[in-house]
Write a protein that binds this DNA or RNA. Sequence first.
DNA 1: GGGTCCCCGTTTTTT
DNA 2: ACGGGGACCC
Length: 745
Amino acid sequence: MSDPFDLDDDIPNPFQPAPRRAEPAPVPADAVWLVGLNPEQTEAVTTTEGPVLVLSGAGTGKTRVLTSRLAQILAGRRAQPWQILSVTFTNRAAREMKERVGHLVGPAAESLWLGTFHSLCVRILRRHAEAVGLKSNFTILDSDDQLRLLKQVMEGEHIDTKKWPAQALMGAIQRWKDRGLTPDKIGPDLAGDLAGGRAQVLYRHYQERLLTLNAADFGDLLLHCLTLFLSHPDALAQYQDQFRYILVDEYQDTNVAQYLWLRLLAQKHKNICCVGDDDQSIYSWRGAEVGNILKFERDFPGAKVVRLESNYRSTPHILAAASGLIANNADRLGKTLRPGIRHDPSEVEKVRVRGVWDGPEEARVVIEEIEALQRKGCSAATIAILVRAGFQTREFEERLITTGIPYRVIGGPRFYERQEIRDAMAYLRLVNSPDDGLAFERIVNLPKRGLGDAALQAVHAVARARAFPLFEAARLLVETDELKPKPRGALTKFCADVLRWRGLLDDLPHTELAEMILDESGYVEMWKNDKSAEAPGRVENLKELVRALADYENLQSFLEHVALVMENDQKDGVDKVTIMTLHGAKGLEFDNVFLPGWEEGVFPHQRAMDEGGNAGLEEERRLAYVGLTRARKRVLVTFAANRRIYNQWQSALPSRFLDELPAADIDRDAERGLIGSWQQSSRPKQPAAWAAPLRDQAGDFEAGDRVFHQKFGGGVVLAVDGDKLEIEFDQAGIKKVLDSFVEPA
DNA sequence: GGGTCCCCGTTTTTT
DNA sequence: ACGGGGACCC
């Protein structure tokens, strides 16, 4: 990938050499954070000076290395806490690291610059907002707002959003931001024929609208920071000077913008330690560049590379299975996981693979296994079902409900992304900052107040004409007689309400004010009167929102927090089976892992291969690797011969990943001849010798043949595609079926 | 301005 | 099958 910025020129540094600091102090070798580290870990922790790349395989103790390293730097008095920048991707990781460092070094942990890329960027941008055209109290938009805003921009440019979906352009803009590309960097080559070839203009207008609204989207947080650094060398120099030590977690997930950000900040002291695993790079589709990790040594000459390969999590069979699988990928930095702990031989099981007839049977089998585990004394919390895609969760949930096993599904709409929460938040935002035009639009007619398109258009017209925020414009508009009496009255009342609530900001505790707003606006009432099944849950969620407010000092800090930390407060600690996607499982571990749906098209996912080609397939394989390495003790991989997708039965082929698991570490449960079908139908690069007789036995079919199928009964072959037959069944209609499941009739 | 019908899409997801 | 969103009509 070409570099959007040329960083080869030295950026002038108006600050003179770093202020004097206390002499580094020797750290005793028996410091608590060094005890029990293996030699590689010790090297990663104690090599504090200069660039270090830590290639840490799954389960090799990277969080321990990161936290120990922080302790080492602090204890060695090499820097003050605020001179250390420690970056993670998720709030979860940031929280965990803060907690663990806190245990090692005490309150000093509080002063570290430790957080997600985005939260750290916000921290910097609030100080320098003017430099990028924002005010320091800028708001951060969620994806909903972003899309609505872009749609408006597109409509303003008379783009047919039916032909050119805003969603697609939004995606492109996000990818550009991921790569640090501002609108002026988007040439025709990049823009393509997106949005009728006008993508660059639309991107520019979108950015202008954001500035007018004093708002930034998530991508902007990085992008604006880069702009700040490049246009204000003094500001950059200040941060370069300040951050003597930089630590980066999950480096394989960094996008180009984050990479540039790090490279700029590390340029002075060059004490940057990146920890990552190229084999666990599973986010290329949202801009992550594995290339960043691959070229670290080029970017930081003289970098020390440490490989962590001792795995303290999984049994040897699981490690071998995962290693065998991932070995099928080209372009790896190359690591070999080896067991770092002794496993009780009586407890070590091979990875099990089992074929089943269809989705429901798969759920039944998995849940039976779960019950067996529970009988053996495993608690539900040690069990996870990791799926490729969200739609796979349903069958497991149904089965778990009927058997009464407690479970939780991680993922799905997050609390702060729910409609009712966003609406309520819009009320709070508008009261907190009346220029929040997006918030105004969202709720001005919610609950319905008889303000439709016409009224909103009128407000927009005034806003444009006077360059006022929407709320101000509305206040002006109701003074005129432009609106019909009914909407005019409604809008007058709405404006008066907002002003009244605003007047109470300082006088009323913010939780009470929020309650008052949700009540007096009629918003809660709206859901209470709603007959739909979800309505009561929504009312509950609104109550929960008010409760959450109580944890913050005021409305402002709450809104700030929510924008950045959009997460589910999953009530943990309860003994439940976890169902989540493979993506969601990265970084977690479980004693018992179920990996269902290993079928061609599902996993590897068809779209990943269609759109990503071989690179897409390799990323799917890394995902499989992530899945296997989540397990400490037991793995059961399943695949179904038939699956209903979009309510259509389709025959499925076992995933090619199954063929890639080393036989010596796998138990293949033979069941109903399904394994036969797997072996027979697996797509060997060249047909296996033993496959032929099986195929002959099954018989070759051709169109017109009369056949019989165990489940669907009699039918006639319509078409043959390799080992797949299209059959019109007498009772069941037209279906695609593997030839091994039918016999000549 | 609000209700109804039809058409489209339907991997992964953090911040 | 199903839900969301847009177009269309009252």
